[in-house]
């Protein structure tokens, strides 16, 4: 059951009402944005629950069990709790910066979904700069973290914000260079072109030896760091910085940071699926199911990391990026260039 047909049917229904084309397009885009917002909200609720269950099973405890079957209503209850919480702005905070930081954080995570290929034909707008747009928009998260850290006028928040900016900035370069090495094979930045160049399973970029697996591993490591998750979760190290940049936030503003964090985790996995695991391509099942399935497998791997590895030290973290990942990713890019030029594995 392909979803693209359903959306096409509604679009044609909208066209048949006789509205001017501009309005039809605007209504369709707003509807798409609202649907994706709903999807992400539900997805984040699910991922929070899933993360707690995964952590509990890895560490031999129960996790949420009391509310509903295996606690599936727990995160819904949490969301209702958060919406009722008082919204506190510290007296000395920079009010405007403090207010807009969570909005910016969420919007930066949300705007990526313009170019997300959920399935065959299930893409809001196939921009020709696709993957570059993703890289550009996700960078705005750094600014929002800095805004939150600086705007709170709190020492822990400031330290957390600065650390996380330094970390995200450091891991961005290996990540983008790795993305570049995939783009080199595709010859296009468009997300649809990237997926379509991996039609068969042996064409998936993860299987293009020797560059593919290295690129995928670099991507997963940098993706974990970009989303500030363990073992790279120094910005929010509970034991030393209480909660890092979001220590002063409460209520819905805190919920927005939380939501953005899980949306970002989903984004990183979804982009990883698109780049290395063939996106929506797969036999028998509808395309969107393949996409979601592969993405959730990557999400699970990120969760697995989080509950298995201890946290790195700040200096180890920075040196790992600059002294290991960066040279490795450049070497891998040159390797990919050589492979492409020599016709090695050039299917």
């Amino acid at each position: 059951m392909e979803l693209a047909g359903i959306f096409k049917y509604f679009y044609e229904l909208l066209v048949s009402t006789g509205l001017p084309q501009v309005w039809v397009d605007i209504i369709a885009m707003v509807a798409a944005a609202v649907i994706i917002f709903g999807f992400l909200a539900v997805c984040a609720l699910f991922l929070v629950w899933w993360e707690r269950k995964v952590s509990a099973h890895i560490q031999q405890r129960f996790g949420p069990m009391r509310t509903g079957w295996h606690g599936w209503r727990q995160t819904i209850a949490d969301a209702i709790k958060l919406i009722q919480k008082e919204d506190i702005t510290p007296m000395t905070a920079d009010r405007a910066v403090f207010y807009w930081a969570p909005i910016m954080c969420f919007v930066a995570a949300f705007a990526v979904y313009v170019v997300m290929p959920f399935g065959d034909g299930l893409i809001v707008s196939d921009l020709n700069v696709g993957i570059l747009y993703v890289v550009a928009i996700t960078s705005f998260t750094i600014i929002s973290l800095l805004m939150a850290g600086w705007g709170s006028n709190n020492k822990y928040a400031l330290l957390g914000g600065m650390r996380s900016a330094a970390q995200v900035v450091s891991y961005e370069i290996p990540m983008v260079v790795t993305i570049c090495s995939v783009v080199l094979f595709v010859g296009s930045l468009s997300m649809v072109d990237i997926v379509q160049s991996q039609a068969q399973i042996y064409q998936w970029y993860i299987f293009r030896l020797p560059f593919g697996p290295i690129a995928f591993i670099i991507y997963i490591i940098t993706g974990t760091a970009e989303t500030n998750r363990t073992p790279f979760d120094l910005p929010e190290a509970e034991q030393e910085l209480v909660a890092g940049f979001n220590v002063e936030y409460s209520g819905m503003k805190f919920a927005m940071f939380f939501l953005a964090e899980f949306v970002n985790m989903f984004t990183v996995s979804a982009i990883g699926t698109t780049l290395f695991l063939g996106g929506w391509q797969g036999p028998f099942l509808p395309s969107w199911m393949w996409f979601l399935g592969k993405t959730l497998v990557l999400v699970f791997i990120l969760m697995w990391f989080r509950w298995t590895y201890p946290r790195l030290r700040v200096d180890q973290l920075m040196e790992f990026s600059w002294k290991f990942l960066l040279p490795l990713s450049f070497a891998n890019l040159i390797l990919a260039g050589l492979m492409k030029y020599s016709g090695w594995f050039n299917w």
């Binding site: 397009d25 605007i26 885009m29 707003v30 798409a32 944005a33 949300f110 705007a111 979904y113 313009v114 809001v124 707008s125 196939d126 921009l127 747009y133």
Partner: peptide
């Protein structure tokens, strides 16, 4: 097509 970005 970039209108979608603004809308989002």
């Amino acid at each position: 097509e970039y209108a979608a970005v603004l809308v989002f």
